[in-house]
Amino acid sequence: MGRSRVKSPWILHFDTGSCNGCDIETWALLTPRYDLERFGVLNEANPKHADVLLVTGPVTKKVEDRLRNLYAQMPEPRVVIAVGNCASTGSPFDDCYNVNGGIDRVLPVDVYIPGCAARPEAIIDGIVLGLRKWRERKFAAHDGTQPSKETEMQEASR
């Protein structure tokens, strides 16, 4: 009975020093052509309400502490999605001195979305994958079970 109260996931989007190509493609998902809100996903600015952290950029030295801080403020279960080539591996900024080179040098990453800039379709794919992981963790945390096959089919067909 209690497990039906799983709310729709809220996304926190943070830019750690990217060229903003992927950020704008992420914003474009909110617009009518791609419309992410039909998945029940909301772009939320408060880290204490967020479930999914969507990060772009190769993590510059100045922004590193703020990223760790945001992650620490997010309640469990939480999922980290790295959007774009520079967030995933650090390239094309491998020769830049002020970057760490990829989100996974700083935080544990659950989903990597490649592309420079990552296409909106790829970002949607990645977010859906991330949401599936988040739901598994949510159910496991709630009552130790996995989501049923019907719930998974419902999610996949949206």
Binding site: D15, K62, V63, D95, C96
Partner: peptide, 22 residues
């Protein structure tokens, strides 16, 4: 400002042909 400082001016000195894309 400075949160987005990657250090591109130094990286752009390395290869003038690759710079078209960097």
């Amino acid at each position: 400002i400075g949160y987005n400082h990657r250090g591109l001016e130094r990286a752009l000195e390395i290869d003038y042909k690759r710079n078209v894309f960097l």
